[in-house]
Design a binder for these strands. Structure first.
Lengths: 103, 103
DNA sequence: ACAACGATTAGACGATTAGCTAATTATCAA
DNA sequence: TTGATAATTAGCTAATCGTCTAATCGTTGT
C-alpha cells in the first residue's frame, strides 16, 4: 500500500499510468510524452513496477508496459473503504464497521 | 493532488488520518499512539496541514486536529474518476469532466 | 512573576529521490 | 561482423525526507 501511494505521489508517474490506461505502450513511446531523459523515465518505470502498478513485457528490442488497473483499484478501494468514503459506481457498501481496522 | 498523495505515502501519516477519522484529537494524544518523538509527529502534522487533509484548531495550550474528509474524498474520487474506477456507493459518474486533466 | 506543560521551531544527520550524462546490454538488419 | 536502435545500469549531484535532541513559544496555575 505504501509503495503504491509513493508511486502515485509523483505527477510524472501518474501521467504514465494515465497514458497506459489507453493501452499498452513501449518505454520509448511513453518517454516521448515527457521532457525528462530516458534513463529518468526508466527509473520511474522501476518505481511503478516495484509498486506492481505496471507489468513489463519484452518484445524484441522494446519493452511494452501494461497498466495493472486492478492493483490501483484495490489500493484506492482499500483506502476509501477504511475511511468510509463512498465513490461513484456499484452500490453503497457502508464502509468499515466500528472497531474494525480495514487492513 | 500531488501534496495529498505525498502525504498519504507515509504509513505514520495514514495512521494519523485513521485516528482522526474517529474524531478530533490533540497533537499530544495523537503522538501518544506512535513511537517517534513529538517533534517528528509535529512535522507529520505539517505535511498533513500542507495537503489540507487536516485542520488545526488551537484550544488553550493544546492543538486539536480535525480530519478534512472531504479533501481526502475529492482526491480519491479524482484519481478513481480519471481511471474509470468504479467504487462502492452513489452512482457511476463517467470519469473526468470535459477539459479537465485530473492532475 | 514564575514554573510547568503542550506544542512547534531550529539545526543536524543519514537515507532516499529525481534528475543528468556516459556506458552497457540486448536485439535486429545489412 | 558491424552498425543502429531500445532500454537499462552506473555513477554522480542537488534537493528533500524522516528522524533526532535542544531550544523556544504560548498558555495556565500557583
Amino acid at each position: 500500500m505504501t509503495s503504491v501511494f509513493k508511486a502515485l505521489s509523483d505527477p510524472t508517474r501518474r501521467k504514465v499510468l494515465e497514458l497506459l490506461k489507453q493501452g499498452p505502450m513501449s518505454a520509448g513511446e511513453l518517454a516521448g510524452h515527457f521532457v525528462v531523459s530516458k534513463p529518468t523515465m526508466s527509473a520511474h518505470f522501476s518505481v511503478l513496477k516495484e509498486a506492481d502498478l505496471v507489468h513489463a513485457q519484452k518484445d524484441g528490442k522494446q519493452v511494452i508496459y501494461h497498466l495493472k488497473l486492478s492493483v490501483l483499484e484495490e489500493a484506492l478501494l482499500g483506502l476509501a473503504g477504511s475511511f468510509g468514503i463512498a465513490m461513484p459506481g456499484k452500490q453503497a457498501s457502508g464502509g468499515v464497521a466500528k472497531g474494525e481496522t480495514a487492513k
